[in-house]
Design a binder for these strands. Structure first.
Length: 417
RNA sequence: GGAGGGUUGGCCGAGCGGUUUAUGGCGCAAGUCUUGAAAACUUGUGGGCUUUUGCCCUCACAGGUUCGAAUCCUGUACCCUCCGCCA
């Protein structure tokens, strides 16, 4: 959410930003509505002023009559104001955030800028298998029964892969705790306001599971519950930034992606994720630094796992509505013969905190909205694709990344006899 | 699922129809003093409109009663205690 004051002062910039993000917003309509709102505010204020004065006078029948009249007039104006406010907030909630200057302008993925590559893409002297084949041959996945039990995109993880799934999550969780991040297990059944607050709503409603008629939804990422953790609160500058390493199961309908990535473990309705979430000061340069820190953490994880990856600076057209800067980290997946997205690292500015009403007392005594950032630390099973496919051997076995070996107690997944 | 009790500013905590413009304390910030710090003192410390004076809103949230609501009524959310159920 952008403030109406900001929009009024930076009209062109906001219009431009929405266009660059391939979004349509009617800023003129918003400003017109706000003009009406201001007029109504003036009118209601002066009526209230009158009422307050009247209430201090000696009570007579005449005063009572006048008071009742005032009340009726005020009610009418207030009702109008309520309607205007609703309309205005509705429109405001659709205005996307304004990207930082260093973000490349572009319509689609072709506008992204590759800024880093790490690791060596493996060259196989045999015909490499996909994770789907490996999963079947080594009895690590059961996608057929997954579909039988859970439906389209359902899956079972079995045997060594089930252990690796746990080990990865714990390895990453623990690594970030050692870096000073507060470990937190987040609820996955969450209220609607957290989804509005994170900027999931109103744009991505079709991708979220809603439970019955309750105000209860399944989280698509721990970003949603953890960013909302301090909603309605005022923090102190000296306690910032708050850094979390959050775990939650994640649920996504993938409604807009029916034809995409239909095979294997890439695009699932249900997965586990460790997410880094930061609530920090309202300061762009500090946010940039934290953004780089989050990036470094995620890259270290891929380096620990010895998986080749690249980093993209995402262009305006590839950014979500709340984002002002975003890096995607993509890990090499041999069966795709391409890098596949495994992490996404964003600065949201005060877009989310304004929706969630998260502020802090600055050292000078003033109050301001915080900034929020987040980055994937690890999402599994998707990362398992990269591990299975990059670590596969000629004999059909799969090696286990060194850092995970002590945790799972084996260093190789061998074909069953 | 049932029965009670509660929710007041950053925090603690008064107020329970009209000098409340929300006592008081703590914390925080600025200033005075000081070589510096502490202490002390002064001022400030929710949001909005106007941006000169000021005005309006704000006591969990949403309605209602009243000339007038933090205060009375209704609903909702959350917290606490107990009973029931339960991994």
């Amino acid at each position: 959410m952008l403030s109406i004051g900001y929009i009024r002062q930076n009209k062109q910039k906001v219009i431009e930003a929405a266009k660059n993000k391939n979004r349509e917003v009617d800023i003129e309509k918003i400003i017109k509505l706000d003009d009406q709102r201001l007029v109504l505010i003036h009118q209601t204020q002066s009526l209230r002023e009158e009422r307050n004065k009247l209430a201090k006078e000696k009570i007579t029948e005449a005063i009572k009559t006048k008071g009742r009249e005032l009340k009726n007039n005020l009610k009418k104006l207030e009702d109008q104001l309520t309607v205007i406010n609703q309309q205005l907030n509705e429109l405001l909630s659709y205005v996307p955030n304004v990207p930082l200057d260093e973000v490349p302008i572009g319509k689609d993925a072709s506008g992204n800028k590759e800024i880093k590559k790490w690791g060596t893409i493996p060259k196989f002297d045999f015909q490499p298998k996909s994770h789907i084949e490996l999963g079947k041959l080594l009895d690590l996945t059961d996608l057929e029964r997954g579909a039988k039990i859970a439906g389209f995109r359902g899956y079972f993880l079995k045997n060594e892969l089930a252990l690796l799934h746990f080990a990865l999550i714990f390895y990453v969780f623990n690594k970030l705790v050692k870096k000073g991040y507060t470990p937190i297990i987040a609820p996955a059944v969450i209220k609607g306001f957290t989804l509005f607050g994170s900027g999931q709503f109103p744009w991505g409603e079709q991708d979220v599971y809603k439970l019955n008629d309750d105000d209860a939804y399944l989280a698509g990422t721990a970003e949603q519950p953890v960013t909302a953790y301090y909603s309605g609160e005022i923090l102190n500058e000296k306690d910032l930034p708050k850094k979390f390493v959050a775990f939650s199961p994640c649920f996504r309908k993938e409604a807009g992606a029916y034809g995409k990535d239909t095979k294997g473990l890439y695009r699932l309705h249900e997965f586990w994720k460790v997410e880094q979430v930061i609530i920090g000061k309202n300061d762009v340069d500090e946010a940039r630094k934290l953004h780089e820190e989050l990036q470094k953490n995620s890259e270290e994880i891929l380096q620990d796992l010895e998986l080749p990856y690249r980093v993209l600076l995402m262009c305006t057209g590839e950014m979500g509505e709340p984002h002002i800067k975003k890096y995607d980290t993509e890990t090499w997946m041999p069966s795709r013969n391409a890098y596949g997205e495994t992490m996404s690292n964003s600065i949201m500015g005060d877009f989310q905190t304004r929706r969630l009403n998260i502020k802090y007392h600055k050292n000078d005594g003033k109050t301001e909205f915080c900034f929020s950032l987040n980055n994937t630390a690890l999402a599994s099973p998707r990362i398992l694709i990269a591990i299975l496919e990059n670590y596969q051997q000629k004999d059909g076995s799969v090696l286990v990344p060194k850092v995970l070996q002590p945790m799972v107690g084996f260093n190789q997944i061998k074909p069953r006899l």
